[in-house]
């Protein structure tokens, strides 16, 4: 159960992010989650969208450097300490987290946490053994 994340290279100048969101908006693509990693010179925009293949295509057509990455998305109860439980599990087995970001769904109640880890297979096994619920793209879109 994998989720496709789209990454876009952005240079640190005014209006670059707006350009991407405008392109997606005009193509009728909805952004479900996003995060930006930035340095003084450039940024990487990471997105989960409802139509990832289309998003990839429109962004490429506009000349952006884009890539897709398979990430893991899990459901986490929206309560203190829940994220910590998951992180402790990963930490305990020495699985490195490259990055993560989270969002709360339309109905509230639960949150979605998106991960990129160094060893996705091991992480998956570990989390499912501990009854953590994975989400697929459809579920994220409805979340």
């Amino acid at each position: 159960m994998q989720v496709t994340q789209i990454s876009v290279f952005l240079q640190n100048t005014a209006g670059r992010l707006a350009g991407v969101t405008k392109t997606l908006g005009e193509a009728g693509i909805n952004i479900r989650a996003l995060s930006i990693a930035d340095t003084s010179d450039f940024g990487i925009l990471r997105l989960i969208v409802d139509k990832s293949e289309e998003a990839l295509k429109v962004l490429k057509d506009r000349g952006y450097a884009v890539s897709k990455t398979e990430v893991i998305a899990v459901r986490v109860p929206d309560k203190p300490g829940e994220l910590s439980t998951i992180l402790s599990l990963l930490e305990g087995t020495g699985i490195n987290i490259e990055y993560l970001y989270a969002f709360v769904g339309r109905s509230g109640g639960d949150a979605v946490v998106v991960f990129r880890v160094e060893e996705p297979q091991r992480a998956r096994v570990l989390l499912s053994e501990n009854n953590i619920e994975f989400l697929d793209e459809d579920q994220i879109n409805k979340f």
């Binding site: 994340q5 990454s7 290279f9 990693a37 340095t39 450039f42 990487i44 990471r46 490429k60 450097a65 884009v66 890539s67 990455t69 490259e98 990055y99 990129r116």
Partner: peptide
């Protein structure tokens, strides 16, 4: 210029 093949999602 960052080309598609050199781009990575990791900083």
């Amino acid at each position: 210029e960052v080309s598609e093949q050199m781009f990575s999602d990791k900083v």
